[in-house]
Amino acid sequence: QVALSRTQVCGILREELFQGDAFHQSDTHIFIIMGASGDLAKKKIYPTIWWLFRDGLLPENTFIVGYARSRLTVADIRKQSEPFFKATPEEKLKLEDFFARNSYVAGQYDDAASYQRLNSHMNALHLGSQANRLFYLALPPTVYEAVTKNIHESCMSQIGWNRIIVEKPFGRDLQSSDRLSNHISSLFREDQIYRIDHYLGKEMVQNLMVLRFANRIFGPIWNRDNIACVILTFKEPFGTEGRGGYFDEFGIIRDVMQNHLLQMLCLVAMEKPASTNSDDVRDEKVKVLKCISEVQANNVVLGQYVGNPDGEGEATKGYLDDPTVPRGSTTATFAAVVLYVENERWDGVPFILRCGKALNERKAEVRLQFHDVAGDIFHQQCKRNELVIRVQPNEAVYTKMMTKKPGMFFNPEESELDLTYGNRYKNVKLPDAYERLILDVFCGSQMHFVRSDELREAWRIFTPLLHQIELEKPKPIPYIYGSRGPTEADELMKRVGFQYEGTYKWVNPHKL
């Protein structure tokens, strides 16, 4: 086992960053958080920038500027975001240094004079007029057009580079997404736009490419001749908990499936790229999406959770019991969808996408189930092999396979070949997804960000279904809070070829 401390991990990262040409360590950078008073800024962006600063992973002359409508001070920003920093008493001095680099400007999102004030403020910072500028839009999409237009007109660096990070949702359907994309691309070049999907920053999602293309053993079996089906799962054990009003506007397909799960599907299904260059990788992902037809209604199961009468606390409440959810809402909190990649490698292999709230566990994984062994000599005792990439929690890679049961006879039983990170790298604290992705933006690497043509294809696949749901308002199937979801989803999976045995229990190697 390799035991690495946080300091050692960050030392390795620093070495990698400083050796590259793309990370300008000594240049002045300004990180501007648009929507600095909001939840995302408070819980994710400010803490992430602090962790990067604490670990010495930001360029040395980096300033952080918050911008929002609320009249706040840096002290206010500190008060609301610091509880999420997880700072230790030993880091007190470092924390003071961090907040000394912070400033805040209040202004409207659609007022040109406010942006001119913001620009004057940035120019007044040390070497601010020639600094590289990175704008993070932690804002609702309704203000994107006004904000990007004003940034472009008043706040661009004339000497350094300018980059803009856009948070999902990128529209509600193909038409609104196209409108937003066309607007942003009329102001910024594609190499300046970073559409963030934080799932692409997760260690195991990034590991998929290495697993596939750096190991000879997987190449020959990664196709329709050997793989019976692919299941991509995202499960949350909690409901909307008072935030249903926002969720109800989008629903589970827009929230998770059309982005996170579809991105994971691309990494499983794509061909080997010409290189690890950002556009070479994204070219292959677009090719996969172009091979997927629009979702067919007979390959869809929609569910909505109801309270568990035997549960406790939140578990007793259904989705419609959330006071922020519109009365009688038919918005799905669970969806199972089957897609097919219609190309030579994957023809006929079902890709089953499942996601839901208020389920029995927290889990995100990719599961490849292989065909049955031909010419069975073990009297149907063999179960199908599976390769599982567990994204969260407890990152893991393992192969479910058959071995001989101890004893006199040739009785096979299920076991696993474990390729888990935790076994080799004991207690290594890896940077989280937002840390990686923000560092990628500083480096100018777009590999783990969504390109406009990729986004367009993703919406093309799901828009007809979303429009049909909005028009017909089908009643989702009720499922109990804390269950596996509607049984109809299991029946759909069985119908397209997935075999669920229920006889195997994964042993978490992190707890051995």
Rank of each mutant, 00 (worst) to 15 (best):
R254H: 03
V256R: 04
V256K: 03
Q258A: 08
Q258D: 01
Q258T: 08
N259H: 01
L261S: 03
L261C: 08
L261R: 05
L261V: 10
L261W: 04
L262C: 09
Q263Y: 03
M264F: 05
C266G: 09
C266N: 09
L267I: 13
L267C: 08
L267K: 05
L267M: 13
V268L: 13
A269P: 04
M270A: 08
M270V: 06
M270H: 07
M270S: 08
M270K: 01
E271K: 07
E271G: 07
E271Y: 05
P273K: 02
P273E: 02
P273L: 04
A274G: 14
A274H: 13
A274N: 15
S275F: 06
T276F: 03
T276M: 06
T276P: 10
N277P: 04
S278V: 08
D279A: 10
D279P: 08
D280I: 13
E284W: 04
E284Q: 11
E284T: 07
K285Y: 01
K285G: 01
K287M: 08
V288L: 11
V288T: 11
L289G: 03
L289T: 06
C291R: 14
S293E: 11
S293K: 15
E294I: 11
E294Q: 14
V295G: 13
V295L: 13
Q296S: 09
A297D: 15
N298I: 12
N299C: 12
N299G: 09
G303H: 03
Q304C: 07
Q304G: 00
Y305I: 00
V306Q: 14
G307R: 09
G307C: 10
N308S: 14
N308Y: 09
N308C: 13
N308R: 15
P309S: 12
P309Y: 12
E312K: 12
G313T: 13
G313F: 12
E314L: 09
E314M: 10
A315Y: 14
G318E: 06
G318I: 03
L320E: 07
D321K: 08
D321R: 07
D322E: 08
D322K: 00
D322W: 04
P323H: 13
T324I: 07
T324K: 09
P326T: 07
P326K: 06
G328C: 15
S329R: 04
S329W: 00
T330M: 14
T330W: 10
T330S: 15
T331P: 04
F334R: 04
F334E: 01
F334C: 06
A336V: 13
V337T: 15
V337K: 02
V338G: 09
V338T: 13
V338S: 12
L339Y: 04
Y340E: 12
Y340I: 08
Y340P: 00
Y340K: 13
V341K: 00
V341W: 03
E342Y: 10
E342D: 15
E342G: 10
E342F: 10
N343E: 05
E344P: 11
E344W: 07
E344T: 12
R345K: 11
W346M: 02
W346V: 02
W346K: 04
D347L: 10
G348L: 00
G348D: 08
P350C: 01
P350G: 01
I352H: 03
I352V: 11
I352W: 03
R354N: 01
R354E: 00
C355D: 03
C355G: 10
C355S: 08
G356C: 02
K357W: 04
A358E: 00
L359I: 06
N360Q: 06
E361V: 06
R362M: 05
R362I: 07
K363D: 06
E365F: 00
E365H: 02
V366H: 00
V366P: 04
L368Y: 06
Q369Y: 01
F370M: 10
H371Q: 12
D372T: 06
V373I: 09
A374Y: 13
A374Q: 14
A374T: 12
D376C: 08
D376N: 14
I377M: 11
I377G: 07
I377R: 07
H379D: 14
Q380S: 11
Q380L: 07
Q380D: 15
Q381M: 10
Q381S: 13
Q381F: 10
C382Y: 13
R384T: 05
R384H: 05
R384N: 08
E386L: 06
E386A: 07
L387P: 01
L387K: 03
L387M: 05
L387A: 07
V388F: 02
V388T: 09
V388L: 06
R390P: 02
V391R: 03
V391S: 03
V391W: 03
Q392P: 01
Q392K: 03
P393K: 08
P393Y: 03
E395N: 08
E395R: 05
V397M: 12
T399E: 07
T399W: 12
T399A: 14
K400Q: 04
K400R: 11
M401S: 04
M402C: 11
T403F: 15
T403C: 14
K404F: 00
K404I: 06
K405S: 14
K405N: 14
K405W: 10
P406Q: 08
G407M: 06
G407V: 06
G407C: 09
M408S: 06
F409N: 14
F410E: 09
E413P: 02
E413H: 11
E414R: 08
E414V: 13
E414Y: 10
S415K: 00
E416W: 04
E416H: 07
E416K: 02
L419C: 14
T420E: 14
Y421M: 10
R424G: 03
R424S: 06
R424D: 06
Y425C: 07
Y425D: 06
N427H: 08
N427I: 07
N427D: 12
V428F: 13
V428I: 10
V428T: 08
L430Q: 09
L430T: 15
P431V: 11
D432V: 07
D432C: 12
A433D: 02
A433K: 00
Y434D: 01
Y434M: 01
E435K: 08
R436V: 07
L437K: 01
L437A: 01
I438D: 01
D440T: 04
D440I: 06
F442W: 09
G444T: 06
S445D: 14
Q446D: 01
Q446A: 07
M447Q: 04
M447V: 09
H448A: 09
H448G: 07
H448Y: 08
F449D: 05
V450K: 04
V450T: 10
V450S: 06
R451C: 01
R451L: 02
S452L: 07
S452A: 11
S452C: 09
D453W: 05
L455I: 00
L455A: 05
R456Q: 12
R456G: 13
R456F: 07
R456Y: 08
E457L: 09
A458M: 06
A458C: 08
W459D: 01
R460T: 07
T463C: 06
P464W: 08
P464L: 09
L465Q: 07
L466H: 02
H467W: 11
Q468E: 14
Q468R: 14
E470I: 07
E472P: 06
E472I: 09
E472F: 12
E472T: 14
K473E: 12
P474Y: 10
P474Q: 12
P474I: 12
I477C: 08
P478W: 08
Y479L: 03
Y479P: 01
Y479G: 03
I480A: 15
Y481S: 09
Y481V: 15
Y481H: 11
G482D: 05
S483K: 08
S483I: 00
S483P: 04
G485L: 05
G485Y: 02
G485H: 05
G485A: 07
P486V: 07
P486T: 00
T487S: 14
E488W: 05
L492T: 08
L492S: 00
M493I: 15
K494L: 12
K494D: 13
R495E: 13
G497N: 15
G497Y: 06
E501R: 11
E501T: 11
G502R: 09
G502S: 14
T503V: 12
T503P: 07
K505D: 15
W506A: 04
